[in-house]
Amino acid sequence: MTDSVEFESSMMSVPDKTLLGLYWTMLRIRKVQLKIAEHYHEDEMHTPVHLCIGQEAIAAGVCANLRTEDYVFSNHRGHGHYLAKGGDLNALIAELHNKEKGCSRGRGGSMHLIDTSVGLLGSSSIVGGGVPIATGAALGAVLRKSDQVSVAFLGDAATEEGIVFESISFAVLKQLPVIFVCENNFYAVYTPLNKRQSHDDIYRHFEGLSIPCFRVDGNNVLETYSIAQEAIERARSGDGPSFLECRTYRMTDHHGGESGVEVGYRTQAEVDHWSAKCPVECYERFLIEKRVLSFEDVKVVGDQIDSEIESAFEYARSSPLPDGDGVLRYVMAE
C-alpha cells in the first residue's frame, strides 16, 4: 500500500463539473462530521453517532453516478451515504438532535436515516441487514420494468453475515440491478479484520458466485467513481449486479469523535499512515495541482458549506422535540 493516492489514471474523461462536484460532496460530508464531533460532547445529540470521517470518497464516488430515483440503502455509519444521495441536511441534523423535524421524526436517530424523496429508503443498524432489502428494491425495479438501480452500502463485517452471501447469490441468480458497495475499513468496532477473517481480500469471497468483483482504493474518489460508474451502467442495462470492495479507513472511533488510539486497539502510527491518504485532502491537492480548483475556490466553497452547516444546527436546535403523546404513532401504517 502506498502512502499517497494516485488520481491521474482515473481522471481521464471525467468533466471538470463532476470533478468539482465530487470534491464538494466529500468536503461537505467531512465538514458535517467534524461539526458533529465538535458538538457531540455537549450531549444535545442523544444518539450514537458513527462518523464516516476518512470514508467520504466512497459515498461521493458511488452516488455521483446515481439518479435521484435510484435506491440507496445505508447502515449504521450512514451520514455520508445520506448526504451524497442528496438527503436534506437540516433533517439530518434535526434527527441527530432527536427532533420532530428530523428525517425520521426523532424515532430513528443517527443510525436510521431516510429521505424517500431522493431514493434513500432506509438504513439498518443490524450489520448486513440492509443488504437483502437493497436487493429486494432492485427486484421491485425489475418487476415494475423500471431501469432504476439499487445500491447496498455495507461494511467489511457485514460480509461475515450469512445474509450477505444469500442476498448476493439471489441477485446473481435473477441478474438484479444492485451494486454491493463494501466499505472495508478493517475494523468491526475494535476488532480488526485479521481477527475475523482468514484473509483481507473481501472481494474474493464472492467470485465463486459469478458476480463481477472489484477491489477499489476507497480513498480515491476518482477510482471509486469510475469503477462504480461501470457497475451502475451494467446494472442499468440489465447485466446484473457487481460487488465492490472499497478499501478505506475510519479516522474516528467506532462511534463518537475521538481517534480510538487512546482506547488502545490501534496505534497512532496506523492512524498517521491513513491520515496521509486522507481522501479529501489528497483530492483537494490534486485538483489544485491540475488547476481545476484554486485556493480561492477552496475558501469560498468551504465558507459556503460552513454557513449551510451552521444554519442546519440552528434549525435543529430551535425546532421542537416530538410530542410525548405521539409515542404510538407510526408503529402501523394507515
Binding site: 435506491y71 440503502f73 429508503l121 432506509g122 441487514g129 443488504v131 437483502p132 432489502i133 437493497a134 436487493t135 429486494g136 428494491a137 432492485a138 427486484l139 421491485g140 425495479a141 418487476l143 415494475r144 432504476q148 439499487s150 450469512g162 445474509i163 444469500e166 442476498s167 447469490s169 439471489f170
Partner: peptide, 14 residues
C-alpha cells in the same frame, strides 16, 4: 432470511 429482506425491499418500492 435474505428472501424476507428481499420481499421487504420490493415492498418499499411499491
Amino acid at each position: 432470511n435474505a428472501l424476507t429482506g428481499i420481499a421487504i425491499g420490493a415492498s418499499l418500492t411499491g
